[in-house]
Design a protein around this nucleic acid. Structure first.
Lengths: 129, 129
DNA sequence: TAGACTTATTCGGTTTATTGAATATAATTA
DNA sequence: TAATTATATTCAATAAACCGAATAAGTCTA
């Protein structure tokens, strides 16, 4: 594995990034770790499909996962990958803002989003009074 | 073409870089433009093979070419691609020096190398006298 | 333990990339 | 114009990636 040519090891990184769905997934993971069903809701891909792409990212060493009850939370294990992506974005003249154009579902069923929603509702309940 | 998803346009860049031979070629073009036979001599790939990979790089908008007599000289049209490569290299902990590990042939038949060799011989002729 | 829920894996058909071999094209020189 | 040189393209076989469908594997709750 480490006796591989440099160019081949480099190529492996780029190969992991050469797929739109995987880039979308990484973009979702830019700010925080997230469970698969969160990505499912926000990206609109099927669960199995996302899981397949996550496997590629995991095998490339770009993401790690952690189980918490029912959910498995993925996070970027190599944050420098975002330097790569941002650099490529700059080459295309794409501003970083347009990156957040992922579908924002009316309601994400994932526990993290549910918790946040509950917090907000409690918040507005307080402010309403 | 420009109505493509951002992630798809990004993916295209990475797709062009996902191949070891193409990375080797870009590495040769890092310092200067070079003809195909120069790459052939320095990388050890067949001419047609290099030409095929150059076509991929050209279609990805990463290199441009210019004819000069018999030779066609290729150059990197988007130098920021080296930021990408260097960034990926950093992720792997590969120093930039090892990048220059391309085969150094005893004699490169390309006109640019021939010119340089002649200059050197003239030089040593002078110093010999 | 049964059932519900989330995520992973396997299988198979389709598409795309790779790459060697042969050949074509374009510029140059004699 | 014919021969030469450098490069590009085409073809075909193999390999790899893609991705939908079905199903398996963990984990939690009742």
């Amino acid at each position: 594995m480490s006796d591989m040519q440099d160019s081949e090891r480099l190529a492996r990184i780029f190969k992991a990034l050469m797929h739109p769905a995987r880039l979308d997934i990484l973009e979702i993971l830019r700010d925080d770790e997230h469970c698969v069903c969160h990505m499912e809701a926000h990206l609109g891909y099927r669960q199995a499909y996302i899981s397949q792409q996550l496997t590629v990212l995991r095998e490339a060493g770009l993401v790690d996962d952690r189980r918490d009850g029912w959910n498995i939370f993925y996070r970027v294990s190599e944050p420098r990958v975002f330097n790569l992506i941002d650099q490529a974005r700059a080459m295309l003249g794409i501003s970083g803002d347009t990156a957040r154009a992922a579908t924002q579902p009316a309601a994400c069923p994932c526990p993290k989003c549910a918790a946040r929603k509950n917090a907000h509702e409690k918040q507005s309940l307080v402010t309403d009074v």
